[in-house]
Design a protein around this nucleic acid. Structure first.
Lengths: 213, 213, 213, 213
DNA sequence: CATGAATGAGACTTCATTCAT
DNA sequence: CATGAATGAAGTCTCATTCAT
């Protein structure tokens, strides 16, 4: 027994479990649940298939463990920030900024985490990106053009048009999902109105606040 | 030959193709690519498997056609709005408002369309929602609390806290994806800064503008 | 449509199902459920594994269908005999004699049928016959010796000692099973007493009856 | 060294072997060879899998040892009875009666023992009893009815109809097996004839003998 | 002799795809 | 062009057996 309270065997077991999860994370986050076989996870983790089943009772439960662990990693970063004693604006600023670290440290964990949260509604299929990305890009480009021209014409504030486009798309797509999944939460009309308001004026109380950001 | 330039046979063919796509849309958008078999699509569309292969050379290409068709339906709504001659603010307002119609008319098409656009990186696995939704909800709730308390304290403008939370989450998640997928487009630091700015002040030039929304 | 009311396709389907059952019967009755793989049944029946699953939804259900069909074949022979209008002795005589036909015509079906009925309690293992047959043979030989010597000494009637041995063993083993499986049906003491009586005196009312047999 | 000629170690070894066999007997006789894993035997016997392999070189050989031991237990009861110096009738009576003790003391050993002897030909599959028991029961009921009505009509002696039915079925089934397995031992016709004779008249020399039973 | 983590062959089952009718 | 029976590769999972400690 060591100070950790775990025998050597137990510690080894945990390490092995970690190894498997790491291997699985790499594969799943690259190719998705259905396009990765247990055989492949076995090879990647340098264990045998049988061993995988000693640690996880099924492919699904392995995946679930992975998701749980990623969710925890993310929430370990975000929750303390939101919990700390500080002025709300500071919190939101820290919250936004903490995403730098998230991106830098946990790319694939996060990708997996988000994949579950954003739309676990869907079990996606093969990569048809090239086919639809074109359409999407056209729309985004046009949206971006509108922003740029609006800025030039003095109608909009001068902000980054790409981030603006990305943000508006994200807000709207996210709202669509939400409206489809839980239509009871808010009426579509209300939601849309509030998105407009938020998007146009932000949440800052006065323009002067800008300086603090 | 008719004025469409298509013989009866050709027109029938197109109709049949539509029927298949409709059946497939229903199934795929409910259960995802990997959990729907060609057999099932055949049954739902009242054709035989063989016939499906007369129209699409593989399951993947059927799926791709579906995605393309959904993408078109969406872009047919959005592009004209962005293209029309009008003041940029009007365009953005119309753009946002057009999403009402999208949600109302094309729920499942859209779900499928978004699924590909937001993160075709990932082929999702089994539904682990219950497991991670908790974590996600905790974070969102805390975030929402911060907004509410900030509003009470006069730090933030009084806007809908749920939409605000949803929007910030969406922007950040979308940015993360983007930063992971195309790190060359913008530096993480820049992106984060601009998100802060956008989120706090919106894109409207002055507070007076609010009235127009 | 033919006079059978089945289309050609349907008739072919039935024939194929028969072919599969025939192949399976051969393998299962030789080697037992657990020692036969679907792959092997596929090879023996000259179909592919996939096809087997078009006809039967699982290995177990294939096996069940087989058992049902064997049970029917047996009962089609035995039940009419017991149902016909005739003197009871005649019925029993016909019943016993019908087993000639059963043995001759349906060896492997019957083996499978009996296997389920006699003692489906047990899922047998590897063939350890050589090991235990010796023991069993010793006992049977001794039993047979007792009968023979009893006959020589005028204590028993002169009947075939081997059949006698086989019969007594069968009765006792069958009773043991029954007593273990459904102890409520009859008390062990009663059962044993009645077996003795039956075995020693038979069921014929008087010795004169013997002539009729 | 003790008077048994075995060192303590050797005696312990034997005890351990016994423990394993006891555990295995329980499991095998309940669920059959193929539905019990070495892991389970290890748990039941409170040894590790590795240890099991120190005592038995394979799962099959463990099973064989078990069968041997059960066979011995049975023959230790039966052989002395057949060997003792006594009148043949007495021996047969004792032989039959000894089965009481067998049933009472060794239910599961015996079940396993019989399973091998009656028809080791077959490795049984899943429990399809409910499906075939109906058929079997119909036949047995009809047979039993014939006996009862024959007894009422004075054609048969008044004996227990259930035991009579069980016995005739057992004799015939056993004969079928025997005829299929070793067709050379006796001709089917001869066998059937002798079964009739035996079944109708028993082996007692005269009716007066009944009193002794 | 005891342990139990690790192995990997092999079992069952599914399903995209083909092709003769 | 329509059909759907047939195919068989590939996937998930089990379990007898080994071997380092």
């Amino acid at each position: 027994m060591t100070k950790t309270g775990l025998s050597r065997k137990e510690r080894e077991r945990l390490l092995h479990k970690e190894d498997i999860l790491t291997a699985a994370l790499k594969l799943f986050s690259d190719r998705g649940f259905h396009n990765v076989s247990m055989q492949e996870i076995a090879e990647q983790s340098e264990f045998s298939v049988g061993t995988l089943y000693k640690f996880f009772e099924s492919k699904e439960s392995l995946f679930a463990a992975l998701i749980r662990s990623c969710a925890n990693r993310v929430s370990d970063i975000l929750i303390p920030i939101l919990d700390e004693k500080a002025d709300e604006k500071q919190k939101i600023i820290s919250y936004i900024e903490s995403h730098k670290r998230i991106i830098e440290e946990y790319a694939s964990s996060i990708r997996l985490y988000l994949s579950q949260n954003l739309q676990s509604v869907l079990t996606l299929g093969p990569d048809v990106e090239p086919e639809t990305d074109a359409v999407r890009e056209v729309i985004r480009q046009k949206l971006s053009d509108v922003f740029e021209s609006g800025m030039r014409n003095g109608i909009f504030k001068s902000v980054d048009p790409w981030i603006t486009t990305l943000s508006l798309s994200a807000i709207l797509e996210s709202f669509i999902f939400s409206a489809i999944k839980s239509p009871e939460k808010i009426s579509i009309d209300d939601g849309i109105s509030r998105i407009k308001e938020l998007f146009f004026t932000g949440i800052a109380k006065s323009l002067s606040v800008q300086n603090d950001i």
